[in-house]
Design a binder for these strands. Structure first.
Length: 436
RNA sequence: GGAGGCGUCGCAUAGUGGUUUAGUGCACCUGUCUUGAAAACAGGAGUAUCGCAAGGUACCGUGAGUUCGAAUCUCACCGCCUCCGCCA
């Protein structure tokens, strides 16, 4: 949510920002509703003040006739208040509907574009591997090795589910273990910051295993409930499954005021993510690229506004460090206005080379939301001068299991159908060199 | 799932219908004293919103209700604690 004062003062910027994101909102209408809201609010408050004054007099005066007179008058005023309050409620409800639809404004360095074709490659890393055979796609290799079984999962649970088995399971936990070591090791983080030339004080991430269920109301506050059809809903329990650990990490500090010196707060949350993939029918139906259920390690950072953009650069640098450690070729992409998330002001994706598909595919995302989510969540910071303002929030993938496994399988595939295990993972897999 | 208790300005507490503009202690900030600190003493200080200001209004888990007036009474919901049951 944006600050209504900011919207009033910058209505053209807000309207233009929404347009760039292809979101249809009427800022003018919001402002006229806000005029109405403020006017009625003032009227209600004036009437309440009148009642309070009279009530004080009733308790102080002894004269029963005067008391009776005042009570009679106040009964009438009360009816007035009730009517005005009703109107205020209606106005606020209309006002809120529009407020929730106004997206965050894209940063000035966000490329403009209608869809993913407008995204800009910022940099690339790594050499694409060359093969003296035709590289296969992950699901074929995985099926042959008996480590990915989507057929059984299809019968048991439906499409877009899978059984991961054997060494691939060990590799999942090796990846998680490796990444947790990176984000909880201050020396490594320091090294990453230095290499990336970022001016920020790195501190360890606190590992968290968050709940996978969330209240829809909280999801609204996270600005992640724009499309209900993309979520698994449990109306009997008024709960829904999270689509990312971000949803229950970012909402950990609702209605909390941090002290300035407590920030930044950095979390690394491991959870399963659930996605209905509505509207993706027929897309990426083979294998484990687009699953209803996958595990993921996700970063969430609460920071001071002046540091938050550097904070995003830091998170992207961590993502790159992970991919470089695994020796997977990737490109960093600045996501354009038409493709970025609703609460984001700036978004980068990392796309990793998938030789079987002969394409770069998204494996990581980094969302900088500024004060947009925190304003809804009411998560704030008290500055050293006593002023209180929304904290800034960033979230970003460390490693998303399905897609990273695919990248490893396809990049490290061998002519005999086996997979060479990246060196960085071997110590977590009993020193094993190949999955065969 | 059953029974009981509890949710008050960072923490701990007082407050059971009207001098409550929510009191007190700890912590916090400022000052006096001190070489400096501590202690002592004096003062300050919740959040949001409207207003140039004076000041107004809302907020005692959330929402509704009773009343001229609600932290206080009623109802619903949420959360926490204790005991019992069940269970990985």
């Amino acid at each position: 949510m944006l600050d209504i004062k900011f919207i009033r003062e910058n209505k053209d910027i807000v309207q233009a920002g929404a347009k760039k994101k292809h979101i249809d909102v009427d800022v003018e209408k919001l402002i006229s509703l806000d005029d109405e809201r403020l006017k009625v609010l003032k009227e209600v408050e004036d009437l309440r003040s009148e009642v309070n004054t009279a009530s004080n007099n009733i308790s102080r005066h002894q004269d029963p006739a005067l008391k009776a007179q005042l009570i009679k008058e106040m009964t009438l005023v009360k009816e007035d208040i009730k009517a005005k309050e009703e109107k205020l409620k209606e106005t606020i409800s209309e006002w809120q509907k529009i407020m929730l639809k106004i997206p965050n404004i894209p940063s000035v360095d966000t490329p403009e574009g209608d869809d993913e074709n407008g995204n800009k490659v910022v940099r690339t890393w790594g050499e694409k591997p060359t093969f003296d055979f035709t590289p296969k796609e992950h699901y074929e290799i995985g099926k042959n090795l008996g480590i990915i079984d989507t057929e059984t999962a299809g019968q048991v649970s439906g499409s877009r589910y899978s059984y991961l088995k054997g060494d691939l399971v060990l590799m999942q936990f090796a990846l998680i273990q490796m990444c947790l070591e990176i984000v909880t090791n201050e020396e490594i983080l320091n090294h990453i910051v230095k290499n990336a030339g970022i001016s920020i004080a790195p501190s360890k991430f606190l590992p968290v295993i968050p709940p996978v269920f969330i209240r829809p109301l909280v999801q609204v506050k996270m600005a992640r409930y724009m499309t209900p059809e993309e979520h698994y809903l449990f109306p009997n329990d008024d709960l829904m499954l999270i689509g990312s650990a971000e949803h229950t990490l970012g909402s950990m500090h609702m209605s909390k005021i941090f002290e300035e010196n407590e920030l930044p707060i950095r979390y690394a949350g491991y959870s399963t993510a659930f996605r209905r993939e509505a509207g993706a029918a027929g897309k990426d139906t083979n294998g484990i690229l687009r699953q209803h259920q996958f595990d993921k390690l996700e970063m969430e950072v609460f920071s001071l506004p002046e540091n938050s953009m550097q904070e995003q650069n830091f998170l992207v640098a961590i993502q790159e460090h992970v991919m470089q450690t695994l020796k997977l070729p990737y490109q960093v992409v600045a996501v354009c206005t038409g493709d970025m998330g609703f609460p984001n002001t700036r978004q980068f994706d990392i796309e990793t080379w998938m030789p079987g598909q002969n394409k770069y595919r998204e494996t990581h995302s980094s969302d900088y939301t500024g004060g947009f989510q925190s304003r809804r969540l009411n998560t704030r910071v008290r500055r050293s001068d006593g002023k209180i303002e929304p904290v800034h929030m960033n979230d970003a993938t460390v490693v998303a299991i399905g897609r990273t496994l695919i990248a490893i399988i396809e990049n490290f595939q061998q002519a005999d159908g086996s997979i060479k295990i990246p060196e960085a993972l071997r110590s977590y897999m009993g020193g094993k060199e190949f999955i065969k």
